[in-house]
Nucleic acid binder design. Sequence first.
DNA 1: CTTAAACACCGCCATG
DNA 2: AACATGGCGGTGTTTA
Length: 329
Amino acid sequence: MTDVGSRHLVAVLVLDGVLPMDLGIPARVFNAALGPAGEQLYTVATCSLGGRPVRTNQDFTIVVEHDERLLARADTVVLATQEPGPVLLATGEPPAGVAAALALIPDRTRIVSLCTSAFLLAAAGLLDGLGATTHWALADDLARLFPRVAVDPRVLFVDNGRVLTSAGGAAALDLCLHLVRRDHGARVANGAARRCVVAPWRDGGQAQFIERPVPEHDQDSTSRARSWALERLADPLTLEDLARQAMMSTRTFTRRFRDEVGVSPHQWLVRARVDRARQLLESTTIGISQIATECGFADAVTLRKHLLAETGLNPTAYRLMYSTPAPAV
DNA sequence: CTTAAACACCGCCATG
DNA sequence: AACATGGCGGTGTTTA
C-alpha cells in the first residue's frame, strides 16, 4: 500500500561511525512499527558525521549517501551520540562539523536527542528557552553550560513538539515509543513494543513524562473509567460497567479504548488484575485463592491460568521467585 | 478433560 | 464530504 518513498524517514545521527548499543536498540522501535497490513511505517537510516561509516549489527536500513542529503530529507532526526567529550563539557563547544550538520536540518524536521545527545542540541541553540532532559549524571553539567535550557532531570523525556529530549537508558526507548504512539496511535506503538521485546506501554495512570506544548493534547476519554476500575478490581466488572463510567455505549467505549490504550478493555482488565495479584504474591503471604478473590478472579484456577500466560510461572513458583523475604519484626 | 452459556471483540453500516 | 456514534450479529474467548 504505502510506497517506500512516502514512508516517514528517521535519520539516526551518530559521530565517527559509533552507534552506542544502548541507543541503537531504541531506534529499532521505528523499524518494528508496522501498519495494519504489516507494512513498515518508518525507514530508519543511520548517518555518520566524521567520515567513518556506521558500523552496526542492528537491522537498520543503511542508506549510503551523503550525510547532508539525508539530514535534509529526513522527517525525524535522532541524535544517538556517545557522551560529550571533555571539550564539550568544559567549554560548551561541540565537535567539529556538528553545528554545520544540524544547520542542514530543515525547520519542520522533528529533532530528537537520546541520552547525552542533548548536549549537541543545546550547543546548537536548539533548546534555548525549552524544557529538556538528559542522563541524570550529566544533567547538572547541561544546566551549567547552557543556562537558557530548562533542564529537568526527573522526567523520562520532554516533548516540546518539534524538539524532544530523553533521559538515559530505558527512557530513550520510552521516547521512541512515545513518538510512534503520537504518529500512529497506541495500537501500533504496542505492537512495536512487543516486537522489540520491551515492556508494553505503561498505563497512562502514572505517566512519568511531561508533555509540554503538544498540539494534540488528547485527554484520554477512557482514563476515568480505567482508574475507576482499578479501585474496584475485586468486583466483577463488565464491559458495560466501564462504558457506563465513561458515559458511552459499549461499542464506542471499546473502540476508543483500543485507540487510546492499545489493547481491548477486557485484556487490559485481566492484565490489571494479574498485576495486582503479582504485587500481593510478592509482598504478602496471603493464600492463593484469597489473592484470586481480592483481584477479581473467580477462583485460584483462573488466577493461575492468567498468571501463567503472562509470566510463565504458576502462583507458587512466582512467589518463590520474586517474593522479598519478610523483614524481621 | 469437555461443554454450554455468557461475555467480549470488531467489521459492517445506518444515522446524526 | 468527512467524521463520530452506536446497534447488529458473526466469531472468538472466558467462565462455570
